[in-house]
Design a protein around this nucleic acid. Structure first.
Lengths: 345, 345
DNA sequence: ATCACGATTGGGAGCGCTCCCATACCATCG
DNA sequence: CGATGGTATGGGAGCGCTCCCAATCGTGAT
């Protein structure tokens, strides 16, 4: 036993040095094998790999990080104000995607919730001090300076969603315009003639995109734009309820509504019920996000699904590329959405 | 510039050594200040703190980890089979709690999803190699060997939930028995006389506890146990639907049902509607978990809420204590649940 | 056979920190 | 007044790895 452990690290775990000794080579060579350097002969590589297997050697992260000056970790930052996100499939999908993309690397995922502004500052400092190789930002608000701040420090950053049309920071987004368009085309295709929309806050880029998609679909179908058919919400159920009542007051004859979020669709559904309109009989309804809510509404809600897992993967790939290639290019990825048809339309 | 940077780390960030130079003390002293050692005079401490502030010094994690042989990170492990968890408030609450408890430490949270068995093995190896100081396990199955495996390696571990009555691994759980009991007492208190239950899989400890709570409440109310009023589900909506039909077939006169999960309550509600029973008029319904579902059901579902955030905090505190004190004691924490009353009962 | 040059390889130096021993200093005590 | 026992402090050693330069070993060209 003592022999087997000779020269072992202080936990009794084998070190590079020991692997080298066992394989009859130098430290440098083992390091090269581990890091996949091509400058190693096949014979030597095989011997080293054998020794690694024999000893059950696992490289010591902290030592690597210190020597190589990279941390082999990336942070996933979630502003917790968006607590909402957490219980939605959105966040779940993102994590799944990120995690899936990381599984074949030896990169760690650090999860950081940011509540107070104090924590934001703290994270900025933290990120600045070499502790992560890159940052994934989820659900950034339009006026959040953090992305630029991090980017200016030279830290690779990728966000989900854009803050505006000409987002300077690399991002992965879903095709909000296309999704909305698809939803409205679907409603028109089902024979609906008067399609209204309940849109999100005008200061959120995604909300504007969804509204654009709605308008584009109507235009493509040769319908005149009609602002009477557009009501504003703020993505919440309450706002959806109010908007629906407003729309019905303005245009009692409408027969379909595209809601820019599922909770708003939920609110709209409630308003419709109260006013004696059936769904989908009198009014067809489509939501956005395909949350758990949608599946459980009565009737189940047709909704636009974001490829959340794909977005998580894409973000991660983009970030790893930034880290490894340090490229000057700012990757922008746009993923397609999918309409999930249910009984509400 | 060059002067300001003299002796700086390779990223231009200040090192301990520089702080020491600026404060006019030795490395060891600065280290003591940073680590809160009492063996430093107030004068010296103040000088060092000033130098740290002046330089904006932030300790280099990897270097600390290497020298001190601790990683300053804990892992939160989630078996992704429980993908379900993700979209429930449960997971969200746990993360929030863990994160809140870590915010004043410099401990990192690593998130690890485990999908395939291969990944489980990989994680075990990973965890074994010094990369985390401890592990939080969420939602472990009754037959999962991972907790014991990790514990045997001497790695501090805390789980949510128990696998059985005499769980050997430290855990934090909510009071399932008490929660169920409270729910049933509530139903009885509302004047219901024939309270049935749809319970979870018999091989899950939490499900057995909830059933025990149900029975205990009836017993306390002086009601005879009646197996005809107990139906098995597997926590899914479908199983709740089937169980409800079964119960009604057996006992058409029942007037209340305690469901051991919200999705089962959802299924039960559907069955009741189909069979022309009103909720809560004919049958009162109570669920468990207080998921988003509960709030959005029609009528909104009374449900037993787990203190998820509190559980996250408790797990973290327990783990940190295990890490710091290396105690031989196996902390077991049981937190109370809360009945959230809504229109369904 | 000799020389140059690329492919491999070994191992020194050093990453920034903690640990701990040796030293310096100070107040108290016999 | 010197011995004694603390308390502060400085700094050497070393954590396990990567980087990189120098050394070694072929191999083909001359």
């Amino acid at each position: 036993m003592a022999v087997a452990r000779r020269g072992a690290g202080r936990d009794g775990r084998p070190t590079l040095e020991q692997v080298a000794a066992r394989a009859g080579v130098g430290r440098g060579t083992v390091s090269r094998v581990i890091n996949g350097s091509p400058r190693v002969s096949d014979r030597t590589r095989a011997a080293v790999e054998q020794a690694i297997a024999d000893l059950g050697y696992v490289p010591h992260q902290a030592a690597r990080a210190l020597a190589a000056n990279r941390s082999n970790a990336i942070a996933l930052v979630v502003p917790e104000a968006e607590g909402r996100l957490f219980s939605e499939p959105f966040f779940s999908g993102i994590i799944r995607g990120v995690s899936a993309e990381l599984v074949d690397t030896d990169i760690q995922l650090l999860l950081t919730l940011i509540r107070a502004p104090r924590e934001r500052a703290r994270f900025a400092q933290y990120a600045a001090s070499d502790r992560v190789d890159g940052v994934l930002l989820v659900s950034v608000h339009g006026d959040d300076p953090l992305p630029d701040q991090l980017a200016e420090m030279g830290l690779p950053v990728v966000m989900t969603g854009r803050r505006s049309e000409d987002e300077p920071v690399p991002y992965v987004d879903c095709d909000n315009v296309g999704g909305a368009q698809q939803a409205v085309e679907h409603l028109l295709g089902r024979g609906r003639s008067t399609v209204a929309t309940i849109s999100g806050p005008a200061d959120m880029y995604a909300a504007r995109c969804r509204l654009d998609g709605y308008r584009e679909a109507l235009r493509a179908a040769g319908k005149a734009a009609d602002d009477e058919l557009v009501a504003r919400g703020d993505f919440t159920e309450e706002s959806g309820y109010a908007a629906m009542r407003e729309l019905l007051a303005r245009r009692p004859t409408l027969d379909a509504v595209f809601c820019a979020s599922d909770p708003m669709a939920m609110g709209a559904r409630r308003a419709l019920r109260e006013l004696g309109r059936s769904v989908p009989g009198d009014v067809a309804l489509v939501g956005f996000d395909d949350s758990a809510l949608a599946r459980h509404m009565d009737p189940p809600l047709t909704s636009v699904r974001q490829p959340t897992e794909g977005m998580g993967r894409a973000m991660t790939r983009a970030l790893l590329q930034l880290i490894n290639e340090g490229g000057q290019d700012r990757p922008h990825v746009l993923l397609p959405t999918e309409l999930v048809r249910r009984a509400s339309s």
